[in-house]
Design a protein around this nucleic acid. Sequence first.
DNA 1: GTCAAGTATTGATCTGGATCAGTTTTAGCG
DNA 2: CGCTAAAACTGATCCAGATCAATACTTGAC
Lengths: 253, 253
Amino acid sequence: MPKNKVIPLNKLKVACKNCGLAKLCLPLGLDSGDIDQLDAIVQRNRPLQRGGHVFQTGNKFRSLYVVKTGTIKTYTQCPNGSEQVVGFHLPGEVVGLDGIECDKHLCSAKALETTAVCEVPFQRLEELTSSIPGLQHQLFRLMSREITKETGLMVLLGKSTAEERLAAFLLSLSVRFHDRGFSPVEFNLSMSRQEIGSYLGLALETVSRLFTHFQDEKTLLVDRKHIEILNMDRLYSLLSNQTTCLDRLRAPN
Amino acid sequence: MPKNKVIPLNKLKVACKNCGLAKLCLPLGLDSGDIDQLDAIVQRNRPLQRGGHVFQTGNKFRSLYVVKTGTIKTYTQCPNGSEQVVGFHLPGEVVGLDGIECDKHLCSAKALETTAVCEVPFQRLEELTSSIPGLQHQLFRLMSREITKETGLMVLLGKSTAEERLAAFLLSLSVRFHDRGFSPVEFNLSMSRQEIGSYLGLALETVSRLFTHFQDEKTLLVDRKHIEILNMDRLYSLLSNQTTCLDRLRAPN
DNA sequence: GTCAAGTATTGATCTGGATCAGTTTTAGCG
DNA sequence: CGCTAAAACTGATCCAGATCAATACTTGAC
């Protein structure tokens, strides 16, 4: 590997205080001193390679993980071997909340590309939230958001067509990229057609056909993993006659 | 209404300490003094009639609600008028968690039968959780459970057949009734076929046909809303080749 | 009691998307 | 660079469950 491709470690070990994601993450609404306390318990390990696991089903629950750079997918494994994707997580999003209840992880989380995460030991976080009301509130809010997001997906899976599902998926990514300072109309997918299909309850062939279809009607410009949204209104119109999940998508924070 | 059908109010105003649901609810793991503090902020209003709303989409979020007796359904309304059921809530289950994030409710909650709820003002609850670590932990656990439950449903909606969905639904009810001291093999459904279908992403006709089908193969005995499970193993076997959602069903607490 | 409205059942038909199958493109590697 | 395996695309077929339609059954109001 050539030297100029090495990711400088000091860049990855940004303190919460200086982190661009702070307004999407646990520190939201905290004052400087409180952020320092939070910062002190956060562990910043070396980045994961593509395919590396953050945790696996059955592992003891110790920490929450916040994506700093890259993408994480969470998934469950079926007895018959096939896997079902339950979420894609972008920078600033928390992974591992489902482990709190039973004190062990109920899904697995792996990196879709080179990915850096902040590890937040949960027991120490709970100690902190007791003394920092704003932090407690923000953690409640993040968990509430997770519930909201999943409810929206349930509604989508319950009664939408394949076309509507993919539109909702692309708009969700668009909004989230935008919130993170990236272009809302042009981005790269870090997941395969297979994984998108699994997440949306569709066959990978259907996903592929839909990309072609959206390209044909000039809604998208698709080049393998690179997506450009040419007609945003068209995507929104596919959801407008539907549910409240639009609000859920828009609500960024 | 004859006098002997009036529900005595004093029975509905049981303190947390004497409530049979305490081990499923917020007080789990607290000592007597802490429960008293929690008890002091809980509001016990008069029961809701069938069809009455606990809250509606867009209402300001002020409180969480715990079902004490009866059943609550939560649902979202589509612009075109149709509604989508997102959950059924039995005694001991918390409703309203999705309101924390945006400080307003994102779904509506209504009683499917005469239903009593405990109202827990959230701001006061947050003050208490700061000083009672066990209460904070239990609230985190309840929220985590909600996330787990929804993930399980997503997986179910994503790739299961109609038969598997209804089996999972019935088993979920069975387990939950059992946890609450009722028979796991014989119970009454408080929701319509329509509502079951909406929840499971199926047409009401399909739900009806499946009940007939399960009856024909001697898995169930169905009399309108009354269900008796004759062959529990058969229902479990429908899920066994599937996902991890079995574990999610079984995990009662 | 009758009537009307809601709820459930059952049958017939249709269709969106799964599945199967074959081809092409891309990415990784010695 | 060519070789191999995975990923993506495309076409043909099939089927689970939606939709449409007609008929009961239940419940509550008057």
